[in-house]
Design a protein around this nucleic acid. Sequence first.
DNA 1: CTGGATTTTCAGAAATTACTGAAACTTCAG
DNA 2: CTGAAGTTTCAGTAATTTCTGAAAATCCAG
Lengths: 187, 187
Amino acid sequence: MNLPPLIQAFVLHFGEMGSRWGINRTVGQIYALLYVSPAPLNADQIVEALGVSRSNVSMGLRELQGWNLAIPKHVPDDRRDHFTTPGDVWEILRVLAEERKKREVDPTLSVLRELLMQAPASEEERHAQQRMADMHGLIEQLTNWYDDVKRLEAERLAQLLALGSRVARLVEATDKVVSLGRRKKKE
Amino acid sequence: MNLPPLIQAFVLHFGEMGSRWGINRTVGQIYALLYVSPAPLNADQIVEALGVSRSNVSMGLRELQGWNLAIPKHVPDDRRDHFTTPGDVWEILRVLAEERKKREVDPTLSVLRELLMQAPASEEERHAQQRMADMHGLIEQLTNWYDDVKRLEAERLAQLLALGSRVARLVEATDKVVSLGRRKKKE
DNA sequence: CTGGATTTTCAGAAATTACTGAAACTTCAG
DNA sequence: CTGAAGTTTCAGTAATTTCTGAAAATCCAG
């Protein structure tokens, strides 16, 4: 690997983290490299930069495309495919959330649904099913919230983030106003 | 493995998912088993239920304890350690979020901070640093929000979830009221 | 078509990670 | 203390995942 020290440190870190993340080292490194690169890179440039085999890069790029984290860009007068990452970090967040949900949450949700349909054959199973129902309920609440919130634009989402838990107070206050309103009507 | 079919299906699924989740099969299975079990289990019962080696269970339990996902419970008149999972699913969510943040986010945040301190040695590095700053900014916003929100109790958190993106509208409306208020003061 | 440039596939090698059984260690009742 | 019950450690093996180089496939200019 032959990269400026700052970039190399970043790339190596993403390689390391890759394993905690369910992607392999090379994929992590390729992503990091594309992310900080000022211009789209082709496979050979990546090979050169990271010092891994051509085929490894090919597979890595393919996986990143599967995650929508590497975007092929056509560079004029060059037959080779060049790749970038989505530019906006909010967009990246969105893509990551979407893909991780698809891989890590959705399968569990569907297994739970299936298991909850079955009739328990014993007290033990009845209890287990109750626990599964709890889990299912939580996941469903979370994914509904996510489906709802993901449609907000980055800017508005950022606003909400900035509010943090103060949003809770706001909701509380509004509750009061609303119930006050109701009270008035009733009177 | 010798378990009621419903429970077995659940346990096997968690084993499978384990790998997408950065934990290994056995750990996933142990967790699932404890989660649906009506009473705390000791290591031998887990060995029996899952058909894996005693030492494997020992290591698995230890890892789950590290995640705060297996809690040792003392059963009277029994020297052996018994284990459960946190009972409330919201509590589990909290624990998971906390641990994953610690393992997956915090290290990156600290590497980014460190790299952002260094002086770029070239235009290329300057650009890379800008990208890192973007990423750092996003992660910091997210973790600040998380630190803030995690203090809410389960119930209030559930309320917020239920609101979903409607919260955005609420914020918008409140903005208007506030700016209206300001306008009045200025006049 | 043909042939060179490029990418993908894939079988096996290399590396990593998970699992086991045996041995070491810990704990505590008697 | 002693030893039986229980737990952890660890070296070696098994299983899995990642990586490579060579070969096959694709793509397109001429």
